[in-house]
């Protein structure tokens, strides 16, 4: 665990403040780690993924003996130290050749992991086409029905979206839409096709993994052509890198941690008054923009209503000297009965 430091000057204080958690988060910084042996394919793939992820990417140039599925503590240490929350670990072994592990963290603890094997890889430089500007946001395209139904692929989609596009922005420059990351699957095998989602959850993963379809990751540049309408016509050209991945091991998120990570900030007051988010009863905005509320009062007992006290309204006194002001009709009746 890193020691907690108290900033000694204003610059250090600002740097620490920038690391504090925010309501709307910055994009995740990814760290690219090479394992004890990465191999040419994985090495190239990681390099080009990093080129796409820049400037929110950190490369570890040395080899590190790190096995995320066995001991994730070095990752957690690096996450804390570098203020990063995403890892790509490249490791090639005899048992699992050309493996890349995507690791996401929450609060500097590992949230979930997904290992893929790089089956085929074509570098960016092999396509003699224009490339996108570094730092531009990509468009993302996912194609297969499994991205909606199979837990492994839902995780993969979430992971890749977090990797490339996980920043909440309120506006985008339409001229800056330059490239596309397209993630497609091979045709769904019949075993997955017939199985209901509940079955896929229960089934032993090792058998299922072999049957999971191959994942094709492609990057294209976008050309927007005039179409005569407001919407331009889209033409794509391959940009690279292109990768064919096969899904291997994975670690699902701990439900408790995931629940915490999925917490959303409460809507701002202005939005809440407009009725975004949770429906608020009895509060509305009128045409002038004022917030108007309605309150409900329980049924009133008019018999107990305090009216103006006037001499003429007072009941006639039957006992001399009884000047009690709170003498109501009820009390009087009682007294009469007792007499």
């Amino acid at each position: 665990m890193l020691r907690t430091v108290k900033p000694k000057n204003a610059r250090a204080k600002r740097a620490l403040q920038a690391r504090e958690s925010k309501e709307v988060e910055d994009p995740r910084t990814a760290i690219f780690v090479k394992g004890t042996h990465a191999g040419e394919k994985v090495h190239g793939a990681m390099k080009e993924l990093m080129a796409l992820k820049r400037p929110h990417a950190i490369s570890f140039s040395r080899k590190n003996a790190v096995r995320p599925f066995e001991d994730a503590s070095p990752l957690e240490f690096w996450a804390q130290k570098n203020d990063a929350s995403l890892f790509v670990v490249g490791q090639s072994t005899k048992k699992r050749p050309d493996g890349m592990t995507f690791v996401r963290t929450y609060d500097a603890r590992v949230l979930d992991m997904c290992e893929v094997g790089v089956d085929k890889w074509v570098s960016m430089s092999e396509f003699k086409t224009p490339k996108s500007t570094p730092g531009h946001k990509p468009l993302m395209h996912f194609a297969s029905e499994l991205f909606d139904s199979h837990p492994r692929l839902i995780q993969l989609k979430s992971m890749l979206m977090d990797f490339f596009n996980g920043e909440v922005i309120d506006s985008v420059c339409l001229a800056g839409l330059e490239h596309v990351i397209s993630v497609s699957l091979a045709p769904t095998p019949p075993s997955l096709n017939s199985a209901t989602p509940a079955d896929t959850l229960q089934a032993s993963t090792s058998k299922q993994d072999a049957e999971l379809p191959r994942v094709h990751v492609r990057a294209y540049t976008v050309r927007l052509l005039a179409s005569g309408t407001r919407t331009p016509r889209v033409e794509l050209a391959p940009m690279g890198p292109s990768m064919d991945l096969s899904l291997r091991r994975h670690a699902a998120a701990d439900p408790e941690m995931l629940k915490q990570a999925m917490r959303r900030p409460r809507l701002r007051k202005q939005d809440a008054a407009k009725g975004l988010g949770k429906k608020r009863k009895n509060v509305e905005l009128d045409e002038m923009g004022d917030v108007r509320g309605r309150i409900h009062v329980a049924k009133q007992d008019l018999a107990k209503l305090q009216t103006r006290r006037m001499k003429g309204l007072k009941p006639a006194r039957d006992v001399a000297g009884d000047g009690d002001e709170s003498d109501g009709p009820g009390q009087r009746r009682k007294r009469r009965r007792s007499e």
């Binding site: 395209h141 194609a143 991205f147 989609k157 045709p187």
Partner: peptide, 16 residues
């Protein structure tokens, strides 16, 4: 919001 589109149509094995 995330500039993402998901195509839930099954993959056409023949043309694939």
């Amino acid at each position: 919001g995330f500039l993402t589109v998901t195509d839930l149509n099954p993959v056409d094995a023949e043309s694939y």
